[in-house]
Design a binder for these strands. Structure first.
Lengths: 153, 153
DNA sequence: GCATCTTCGCAAGTCGATTGCGCCACCGAG
DNA sequence: CTCGGTGGCGCAATCGACTTGCGAAGATGC
């Protein structure tokens, strides 16, 4: 599916405000409501818009800490990796998990309420996963920017 | 603001589907529509729900690569850091930016279309920022999990 | 046990979403 | 150059959901 300038404008707005009303969205992108809504539906059906979500304030929701954990596995064979992946999928504290090329084997983003909470998570969940050789935790001291918006050019 | 079990249920649902209709949301959490909507409004006013966003499919939107860059600065004084932060805020490719404690000084998530696009970004934008001493790029080979939902217990 | 406060559920009114239809501009063929 | 076809836009009417006010029920504290 080819995106023209109006589609990109729609996507930029929806990435800022996923609950904007169609009439207002139409005004912002320079269209009347019905073709605007039609384009949104097409973008949804094409899967370009994957879903809509509410973004919570982590501090006010009681999970102010977001830690990064770099993971080294004992081996890189499919069995070890698949087992690790399956384990990560079951842990709700793991908000993001990537298998990495390069230095470490995986990168996690873990949401916790404080450092004690993280230590508990590490001891009762992470260390019980087979195949993990080492974990290095990286702590952000300041969140400079956290957009989930893709920069469409 | 104290969250009871119903509030948490509402937040869990809205983190999955930010455009769910109020009547359906009410059914899922076991409430009638009006008190349900009232709670949602309170959660928004309290800032617990920060905003609603559309989540795009990075592949279908033409930005399939999400790279992590660990940054080392030349110094840790406020001036150097503030200048770096200001620069990161202006770069749309930088979806996330954290100032880190520990090994590296900052962590970035950069959205690009391919590796050439990233090289171009690095040479025309990153290297022109004063105060950057070194950058190590970490490439994910597989996205195992990518939830923006906080695990409310 | 009573008063008060909070929160729920119901119902009516209002607003926006949704669909069908006609029109216009662009494009290709003859 | 003209004509037929196609795709997208805008308008209007219907439908559905959101929204607000009010009465009732349950919980809490004195």
């Amino acid at each position: 599916m080819r995106l023209d300038e109006i589609d990109k404008r729609i996507l930029r707005v929806l990435q800022r405000d996923g609950r904007i009303q169609n009439v207002e969205l139409a005004k912002e992108v320079g269209l009347s409501p019905s073709p605007c809504l039609r384009r949104v539906k097409l973008l949804e059906d094409a899967g370009i818009i994957d879903r809509y979500v509410a973004v919570l304030n982590p501090v006010k929701a009681g999970l102010p800490l977001s830690l990064f954990a770099r993971v080294w596995l004992t081996a890189q064979d499919a069995e070890t990796i698949d087992h690790f992946i399956a384990a990560m999928k079951t842990l709700p504290q793991v908000m993001e998990c990537y298998i990495m090329l390069g230095e470490s084997d995986a990168l996690l983003r873990v949401a916790v309420s404080d450092l004690d909470d993280y230590r508990q998570f590490q001891s009762t969940h992470l260390t019980r996963v087979n195949g993990i050789q080492n974990v290095k935790t990286d702590v952000p001291s300041q969140v400079v920017k956290q957009t989930y918006a893709l920069p469409l050019r």
